[in-house]
């Protein structure tokens, strides 16, 4: 049994126009000390899924079903009060934009100490000392002075460090980082990613990192889960997914971002069209309207039948959701030569 085990997670939002299936049957496992990267575009359901793990959806507007087993306890079955007590203590979260994620009217130190005092019966003074200790741990210079600053007096990178301090102050066993570096500059992003890896080793936490940046995933994650239209479309170890992807959407992600270290001859192949509507998702495979390989599938399977998540051609726990019979061959022969001609020769 894994430390975190999510089974068939569904998050549906009933609206006047119909049910928005933001997450529609998501399953994955994660061990302590490991990192899972969840990749997808806006509206793919990645943030909605992690909010469900934290129990942040309000019952009044979201229907959450499935199983979220954290250390053997199903987070969807426990009471609201029990879930609240676990929030911030067992499961903590870091958000994308540290400026808006911190309350502008309260001092940074107070906000961090507050997170500690919710779960520990200690004096304000002790909590403050603990906050300074955490600020020091995440590399904020002069923590005993900066603890009394307001968020707007911090730089972007320092704010994200403070958010990390806030998230880790209770020593959580699961840390969810939702686009933790998207709002930051590259050199600051590098600092924050280093810090996260460093802290993960110390705290032996399981980490979920949500991002649209495959580069971040490549550096941080042991496993990758690619989401599209509320569903997992490819799942496996990072190395496997990045070197032998078997789902055309993943190919599209790889081919549509230019790389700093890429062959200058590499071409930019955009994914045509727009991300799907979750209210009215396309029939069959959600990706078929934008897929450039659908003609290789016999009949109109892609239009009519939603593919199951099936093992990839190379095994090793690699899962993909695609009707293509020989995705490995298509990738080697058609996709790779376009996006990374230099790699073809190496193989």
């Amino acid at each position: 049994m894994s430390f975190l085990s999510v089974r068939d997670l569904r998050v549906h939002f009933p609206t006047i126009d119909g049910v928005v299936k933001a997450t529609d049957g998501l399953s994955f496992d994660l061990e302590r000390g490991k990192t899972l990267g969840i990749v997808g575009e806006s509206g793919s359901g990645k943030s909605v899924s992690t909010s469900a793990i934290l129990g942040l959806h309000r019952r009044t507007n979201a229907i959450v079903s499935g199983e979220i087993l954290l250390d053997g306890v199903d987070l969807l079955k426990i009471s609201d009060e029990d879930m609240r007590r676990r929030r911030g203590r067992d499961v903590a979260m870091i958000f994308q934009d540290p400026l808006s994620a911190m309350h502008p009217y309260y001092r940074v130190g107070n906000q961090i100490a507050e997170a500690y005092r919710v779960h520990h019966d200690v004096s304000k003074k002790a909590a403050r000392a603990r906050a300074i200790e955490m600020l020091d741990r995440v590399g904020i210079p002069q923590p005993d002075r900066r603890v009394d600053d307001y968020p707007h007096q911090f730089s972007g990178g320092m704010r994200q460090r403070a958010m990390i301090a806030m998230a880790l102050i209770n020593n959580p066993s699961l840390l969810i980082a939702d686009e933790p570096t998207t709002a930051l500059d590259v050199t600051v992003q590098a600092q924050i990613l280093d810090l996260l890896q460093d802290l993960q080793r110390d705290f032996d936490a399981a980490v979920m990192i949500i991002t649209h940046d495959l580069g971040v995933v490549a550096e941080m994650a042991h496993d990758v889960l690619v989401m599209y239209g509320g569903r997992c479309v490819e799942y496996g170890s990072t190395k496997e997914i990045l070197t032998h992807p078997e789902m055309p959407y993943t190919w599209g992600l790889l081919s549509s971002i230019p790389e700093v270290g890429a062959d200058p001859e590499a071409k930019l192949l955009p994914i045509p069209g727009n991300p799907p509507s979750l209210l009215n998702p396309p029939s069959g495979c959600h990706f078929h309207p934008r897929c450039t390989h659908r003609d290789k599938v016999p009949g109109d399977l892609c239009w009519t039948v939603s593919p199951e998540l099936t093992p990839g051609t190379r095994g090793d726990g690699h899962l993909k959701r695609c009707h293509l019979a020989n995705p490995d061959v298509v990738y080697e022969r058609e996709v790779l030569p376009e996006i990374a001609p230099d790699l073809v020769e190496e193989r």
């Binding site: 590259v186 990045l242 790889l254 971002i257 890429a262």
Partner: peptide, 28 residues
């Protein structure tokens, strides 16, 4: 050099091993 080394690289990481990063300390 620091800026370029800070950009996460899919290909480098995918074939194992990460490019050595030049750490820039502090803020602008």
């Amino acid at each position: 050099q620091a800026l370029l080394s800070a950009v996460p690289d899919v290909r480098q990481a995918a074939v194992g091993g990460r490019r050595e990063r030049i750490r820039l300390e502090g803020d602008v």
